[in-house]
Design a protein around this nucleic acid. Structure first.
Lengths: 224, 224
DNA sequence: CGCCGTTTTGAGCCTAGTCAATGTACGTGG
DNA sequence: CCACGTACATTGACTAGGCTCAAAACGGCG
């Protein structure tokens, strides 16, 4: 069991969540906020006073075991809603990857909005169901796919969600984040990417975290 | 990668889903139905015309890879709602484990009920959020826990959900179902249970699938 | 240029998977 | 009633995919 690439989120947790005016700006329904790399929007166990919609950047929501092993349940990209809870506490923590902008909505308004605004209600409901679908897909990946298949699935999914030209993608997250999302180690992620590159399915662009998917057909075949 | 314990659900899929009167009985809001061991309530890709609530027995909802590898995303026990979808198709299949009774609700009524009945709306919403919470917890298990830890988590969860006396539990599902839920093989499930029994944490009762959790404290410690 | 965090690569090990055989429970029919 | 068949579960021996430990390479930035 690997314990190493836990980025103990506590690093940035500082004060219990409060809307700091220096980063907040009110909009019609919610409050626009900005966060920097690694900053925590909320932690596991925090009061679930707000839920969020991503405006720009990427968020990771994760859970930790007592010894620091980490699972990233989901990456949230522009447009995604997250942080809605059945109970009073957040059941996972959410951290910014790079610079992000989000809109925070008061949870207390949720019930009212659901009641009064059918369009909003549908948006919430289908966003939640969409998350559940993604979760079920991801459980299949975690429980039953081999490292290569995990990687192929991940790359195709990311390409679809954040590609401009549908072939080259600029990953916002580190190898460590990818590893903790796919249930692998950082070494296996790196090795698998190198292997895919040597096989000609992808190209690892020298510029940081950019990857070009040259052979999507072959990747889809790996995706099982 | 193991492919062996896929119970190709097609075995029972027969006709596209239709309410057979011989097993259906109308109630106030929905239609009560009964299914026998291994029968499929709906399959991946079927029209999502209905969603369900378990009355008695247990249901497994699962996904398959092309080569037969199977992941059981969730077990549904009495009271649980399942099968609600954002789109028009079911994204996973649902099969009866043993004999089950369910109430089927027409999906077309969902929108109306959500609109008109606040209590029902909250029930749906919180059931969905509850499923999402369970899914996130389970992803942590699948991605980051070792076999023993997976088993401990599973046993404690099942004990809580279906125990009468909170110590002895009668598992409704086979080893193969457990394996496909925990991302293990049937052999590892069996070995891990034997090992826990030898260590005195549990007792494997001779009567079929009953297990007694003698040392819950120790199990919780394993649960991490 | 030199530092630091991230990523890549290598060598060896270990957990869980594979393959195979045996054991157990249960239902059917002689 | 017991032999037989089938499905499920357990156990053993061996293998392999991914993890651990370790070191080198890379890239961004002061």
């Amino acid at each position: 069991m690997q314990v190493r690439n836990a980025t103990f989120a506590a690093k940035f947790s500082s004060a219990p969540f409060a809307l700091r005016q220096d980063r907040a700006e009110k909009t019609a329904a919610g409050i626009q906020m900005a966060f920097g790399p690694g900053e925590e929007l909320f932690g596991e166990g925090d009061e679930a006073d707000f839920f969020y919609q991503v405006v720009s950047g990427a968020i990771r929501s994760c859970k930790l075991l007592s010894d620091g092993r980490r699972q990233i349940d989901a990456f949230h990209l522009p447009g995604d809603l997250f942080g809605i809870e059945a109970g009073d506490e957040h059941r996972f923590s959410a951290e910014a990857i790079g610079n992000v902008a989000v809109i925070a909505y008061r949870r207390s308004r949720l019930t009212a909005l659901i009641q009064d605004d059918p369009a909003f209600r549908d948006k919430i409901m289908s966003a939640t169901l969409r998350s559940l679908e993604r979760a079920y897909d991801h459980m299949l990946l975690l429980g039953r796919k081999a490292a290569q298949e995990k990687m192929a699935t991940f790359l195709l999914d990311m390409a679809q969600r954040l590609s401009k030209d549908d072939e080259t993608l600029e990953l916002p997250m580190s190898r460590s984040d990818i590893a903790d999302h796919l249930g692998l180690t950082i070494e296996t992620v790196s090795r698998t990417l190198s292997h895919l590159a040597r096989s000609g399915l992808i190209r690892l662009l020298p510029a940081g975290r950019s990857i070009s998917l040259c052979d999507k057909m072959a990747l889809r075949r790996l995706d099982a």
